[in-house]
Simulated assay, not measured.
Amino acid sequence: MEEQTIRVQRCETKKEKPQDDQLVFGKIFTDHMFVMDYSEPLGWHNASIVPYQPLQIEPSAMVFHYAQSVFEGLKAYRTDNGSIELFRPEKNMERLNRSNDRLCIPPIDEEFALKAIKQLVSIDRDWVPHTEGTSLYIRPFIISTETYIGVSAAAHYKFIVILSPVGAYYKEGLNPVKIAVENDYVRTVKGGTGEAKTGGNYAASLKAQEMVAKTGYTQVLWLDGVEKKYIEEVGSMNVFFKINGEVVTPKLNGSILSGITRLSVIELLNHWDVPVIERRISIEELYEAYQNGQLEEAFGSGTAAVISPIGELKWGDKQMIINDGKTGEISKKVYDTITGIQYGHIEDSFNWMQNIETESTVKH
Rank of each mutant, 00 (worst) to 15 (best):
M1R: 10
E2F: 05
E3I: 13
E3A: 02
I6G: 09
R7G: 11
R10C: 00
R10N: 08
K15N: 13
E16D: 13
P18Q: 03
D20H: 03
F25A: 14
K27M: 13
D31M: 13
M36N: 01
E40I: 15
L42G: 10
N46S: 15
A47H: 00
S48A: 14
I49M: 05
V50I: 14
Y52H: 13
P54G: 10
P59T: 04
S60P: 00
V63C: 10
V63T: 04
H65A: 05
Y66K: 05
V70D: 02
F71S: 10
K75T: 07
Y77K: 10
Y77C: 13
R78I: 13
T79Y: 12
S83G: 12
L86Q: 03
F87E: 09
R88N: 03
E90N: 14
R98M: 03
R98N: 11
I105D: 04
P106T: 03
P107M: 03
E110P: 00
E111P: 00
L114H: 01
V121W: 06
S122W: 00
S122N: 12
D124M: 04
D124C: 11
H130T: 12
E132Y: 09
I138D: 04
I138V: 14
I142E: 02
E146L: 11
Y148C: 14
A153M: 12
A154T: 08
A155S: 15
H156E: 15
I162Y: 06
G167T: 04
P176Q: 06
E182F: 06
V186C: 08
V186S: 00
T188E: 01
K190P: 09
K190T: 15
K190D: 03
A196V: 00
T198D: 05
G199Q: 05
G200W: 07
A203T: 13
A204R: 01
K207A: 15
A208N: 06
Q209C: 12
M211R: 11
T215N: 14
Y217A: 03
Q219F: 02
K229N: 15
I231W: 00
M237G: 12
V239C: 01
F240M: 09
V248W: 00
T249P: 02
T249L: 01
P250H: 09
L252P: 08
L257S: 11
W272L: 13
D273I: 07
D273R: 11
E278H: 15
E278S: 15
E285T: 10
Y287I: 10
E288C: 08
Q294R: 13
E297T: 04
A298Q: 04
A298N: 06
F299Q: 02
F299I: 06
S301T: 13
T303R: 12
P309Q: 09
E312Q: 15
W315D: 10
D324Q: 14
S331K: 01
V334E: 08
T339L: 08
I341T: 03
Q354P: 01
Q354F: 01
T361Y: 02
V362N: 08
H364E: 07
